[in-house]
Design a binder for these strands. Structure first.
Lengths: 261, 261
DNA sequence: CATTCAATG
DNA sequence: CATTTAATG
């Protein structure tokens, strides 16, 4: 769940959502804060173990993992030196599962930020493969949750034609995500899409501009990518699109999956 | 009247205040906007002629003059090249009167901004003398209105002891303002103080921090400095301290004088 | 269009 | 502590 600033999200209802959540694991992106900036009951909510990977630059990025049981291990970053302090990747080992919170750079065509996104993608795919192999050797499934900032296919955003040249739906980005999901390469499964193969969306992000949310002009860029063994256990997956504009506490909505294990 | 951002002031009631104002001339400081950023009825209110001197840097400073009758001439700046595009000085000729809107730099001890304030003061005092002489030769009185960012005497701020080392109440700043008001040098009269010689304040600025406004912990730094002929015609002078915090639309309050001419 | 930040005040 | 901008999204 990309909270678009945890401090702002708290003011608008994040804690109510969390209190009502039945989840065992919650992955946050765009926390955009450090511990000193938030009350303890936000940073370490009662009933949860919390791990954070803040960005070195104040007010930027930042990912977190909230788990009901204490992880056996927590690791920040995925090996690429450039992104170690960028607040974009955090993983934790739980019994039989490695779960990760990912915030892939959003990019902007023709800028250095797009080049950064591409460097991230280039380094991250081989890591995903190693992660899967390592986890398999340890008897663990893997679930990488977060804001991938890429819509894979035309069904994953409302206006795919108008967005063909835009960051998030570039051919090279879509191809890269295809490799992540290719059984012969990345080997991950898009859990929500696997359960809803023929649906438009469900979208998980809507621009704040115009009437994007009201018109459901959104993108499905928040993905839960799991190893096939885990993905096969998914029995339900859904996006918590807020019923009203007043209830929105981020420009993203929570994406949830339920596993029967 | 320092509006602390005309766009913010509009949202909080500036236009209501202006509509109710009986003034012939209104001097604004810290407009912090250019024409394109505001609706026409704010930038050029019905019934007023408006002249602006915006700062070259976006969102900074900016002074304005609203006059019920059209000025015979409008001039931006006071001759100092450094401050020409700084949005800090604007004057207009009306029949028998030159009126100016001034926003003197606020300064901060030990910083370049304090050095800038001092350069402004050094260049501005001789200008004030020339202005008075030129106006006298043309049969005009002078009134320089605005945020001088200096409290002249102990009665001009609530906590003068605690502020002895702070910008706005430094000995050299107070001495400089004394020279502006010295009959033998600047030759200007502090119109409000002349009518209220024995009063604490009246303050015209209160910090947004703490309870400064509620406790009237303010500063009298917004001055109307006039040539003696004009100052002698002042029959009333007052600060419109808002009755409640909700009515405040700036951290300053309007300072008004009524002249019988 | 919303969230941060830094600079200014 | 409020207003702006800039960068980011």
């Amino acid at each position: 769940m990309n909270v678009n600033g945890l401090r702002a999200a708290v003011k608008k209802g994040y804690l109510d959502w969390l209190a009502a959540s039945p989840a065992d694991v919650v992955c946050l992106q765009e926390v955009r804060a450090v511990e000193e900036q938030l009350p303890a009951d936000v940073w370490r909510p009662a009933g949860w173990h919390a791990a954070y990977a803040p960005a070195a630059v104040k007010g930027r990025a930042g990912v977190a993992l909230l788990t009901r049981r204490e992880p056996d291990a927590v690791r920040v970053g995925f090996g690429a030196e450039e992104f170690l302090g960028s607040g974009r990747y955090l993983e934790a080992d739980l019994p039989g599962l490695t779960v990760a919170s990912l915030y892939l750079p959003s990019g902007e065509v023709g800028t250095e930020r797009q080049a950064e996104k591409e460097r991230f993608m280039a380094a991250f795919l081989p890591y995903l493969v190693r992660l899967r192999e390592r986890a398999a050797a340890a008897g663990r499934e893997v679930l990488v949750c977060g804001d991938w900032n890429i819509a894979h296919r035309e069904a994953d955003l409302r206006n795919w034609r108008a967005n063909r040249g835009n960051a998030g739906f570039l051919p090279e980005e879509r191809a890269w995500l295809g490799r992540v999901l290719d059984p012969a390469e990345g080997g991950y499964t898009d859990v929500v899409r696997a359960l809803h193969p023929d649906q438009e969306g469900p979208y998980s992000w809507w621009s704040y501009r115009g009437r994007a949310f009201d018109n459901d002009t959104g993108w499905r860029i928040d993905l839960l990518c799991g190893t096939p063994g885990l993905a096969g256990q998914a029995v339900k997956a859904y996006v918590e699109r807020a019923a009203s504009h007043a209830e929105r506490w981020s420009d993203h909505a929570p994406v949830t999956a339920v596993f029967d294990r």
